[in-house]
């Protein structure tokens, strides 16, 4: 039984680590989320389902992604949207509208506040590329069950004054490190927007969102669903893909 103490020690150590890890810091949680969500180089196929006032529309697109800052979207369906493209480099966005319009429109100023393809997301929502940890102080404040999954409750409060949402609250899956629910608040503390992660799937060695539902809480719409159909990791993407020239191709 010489080994016994070693095993005990191993257990004790492991247990202690796990025990400490039970309340990670807010920063840890955010980093773990990033690790799951940020794709190095990937091509994904997604569908946006928009539940508008008068009906439901769905838009399919092919997306080229590189890290947090580069994205190129080409809409493929319905026929009306086919050929429209969007390029995002950091916080800049350009939209391309194919023939006969054949125009590249810089999305800046108040256009950033327009919704993306009529969804509950604005261009501003998708272009915010500052790190959450740079913008917010994060604090784990407790645990709650969301969709039968055990979650940390992480509260973010802004440390800068030029941030769209003054505070946010995340419910992060303790095992899979994905936010299953997020609410964004106004300065007055009133909830404004909400997203719910309804399905996830495993992608190589990580968990990735499959279906997200966005809601504008001040309107009683039915929200927007964002569905990831498939993801090709480590895709070969030419650097020229993320240029304005690629928009007109």
């Amino acid at each position: 039984m010489k080994k016994a103490p070693a095993i005990i020690i191993f257990f004790i150590i492991t247990y202690t680590i796990i025990g400490f890890a039970q309340v990670p810091s807010g920063l840890d949680v955010l980093m773990k989320i990033d690790k799951n969500l940020v794709l190095d180089k990937a091509i994904s196929y997604t569908t946006i389902i928009i539940h508008g006032r008068t009906g439901t529309r769905s838009i399919k697109s092919k997306n080229w992604i590189e890290g947090k800052d580069k994205a190129f979207v080409e809409y493929t369906d319905p026929p009306r949207e086919k050929g429209k493209k969007m390029l995002r480099l950091g916080n800049q966005v350009w939209n391309y509208y194919p023939e006969p319009t054949d125009r590249i429109i810089t999305i800046s100023g108040h256009l950033l506040r327009q919704s993306v393809m009529g969804s509950d997301l604005s261009y501003e929502d998708i272009t915010e590329n500052r790190k959450l940890t740079d913008m917010y102080d994060a604090k784990v404040t407790g645990s709650e069950m969301i969709n039968n999954r055990n979650c940390y409750v992480v509260e973010l409060s802004s440390k800068l004054d030029d941030i769209a949402y003054h505070s946010r609250k995340l419910w992060v899956d303790k095992e899979r490190w994905l936010p299953l629910k997020e609410i964004r608040y106004a300065k007055s503390g009133r909830p404004i927007k909400q997203s719910e992660l309804l399905e996830v799937f495993s992608l190589e060695n990580r968990w990735y969102p499959k279906r997200i539902l966005y809601h504008d809480l001040m309107q009683n719409g039915n929200g927007t669903e964002y569905i990831v159909e498939s993801v090709e990791l480590h895709a070969a993407i030419a650097e020229s893909q993320f240029t304005k020239a690629a928009l007109k191709k």
């Binding site: 928009i50 508008g52 008068t54 529309r57 939209n95 509208y97 006969p100 319009t101 054949d102 125009r103 429109i105 999305i107 256009l111 327009q114 919704s115 993306v116 393809m117 009529g118 969804s119």
Partner: peptide
């Protein structure tokens, strides 16, 4: 000249 407006679906509508 290009018109930027909002389509009935709420998206940015663009037309020359």
């Amino acid at each position: 000249i290009t018109l930027l407006s909002t389509s009935s679906g709420g998206a940015i509508a663009v037309q020359n």
